[in-house]
């Protein structure tokens, strides 16, 4: 017993330690987000939050649901692999509400974006020098964008 005669300060210290640990546990409970550690050292709910962001491009399946005729024309032509919104732009709002009209397109800008001649482009990709090729005549005069090969009687 004599050994613990003056041990009061040790018990006080141990008591303070226990209190501090309890405070730590309480603070941690409120500070650490609930889903932290669900899958790893991060907030698990963040995954769902990122997945919930709104989309801007509807995806070609959404377009084809209504515009099946154009999808068929396109599938038969050279532009089969070019998805709708690659030229028409982001139209998720139009897909959700068809009364919202998409903006008119300018073939003078759009066609040349891909088809302008450049030595850097793959050799087998069809390229034109717009000035030489049509000297200002609009592309869709001869080429129908959904099926660009020149048809007898010009573009429909």
């Amino acid at each position: 017993m004599s050994r613990f005669k003056d041990a009061g300060h040790l018990f006080r210290f141990a008591f303070l330690f226990v209190v501090a640990f309890a405070v730590f546990l309480v603070v941690r409970h409120f500070v650490v987000p609930r889903s932290f550690g669900e899958y790893g050292h991060y907030r698990g709910a963040a995954i769902g939050e990122i997945a919930a962001h709104p989309i801007h491009f509807a995806g070609h399946q959404a377009c084809e649901a209504c515009h099946a005729d154009i999808a068929d024309t396109k599938k038969a032509g050279k532009h089969a692999t070019v998805n709708c919104e690659a030229c028409h732009g982001p139209l998720a709002n139009h897909a959700a509400d068809p009364s919202i009209q998409p903006a008119k397109l300018d073939t003078a800008v759009l066609c040349i974006r891909c088809h302008a001649a450049s030595a850097a482009k793959p050799k087998d990709f069809p390229q034109v020098d717009a000035e030489q090729h049509s000297s200002g005549v609009a592309c869709e005069t001869c080429h129908q964008p959904h099926s660009p090969a020149i048809q007898a009687g010009g573009a429909k």
Binding site: I47, I50, A51, A52, H53, P54, I55, H56, F57, G59, H60, H79, T81, V82, N83, E85, A86, C114, F125
Partner: peptide, 23 residues
């Protein structure tokens, strides 16, 4: 880049893949 996580979890392609004209 999130690989368009909000798209691929809905069964869509990422915006860059959807809009690449040459695949």
């Amino acid at each position: 880049c999130t690989l368009c996580y909000h798209r691929i979890t809905k069964g869509l392609k990422p915006a860059c893949v959807e809009n690449c004209p040459t695949g």
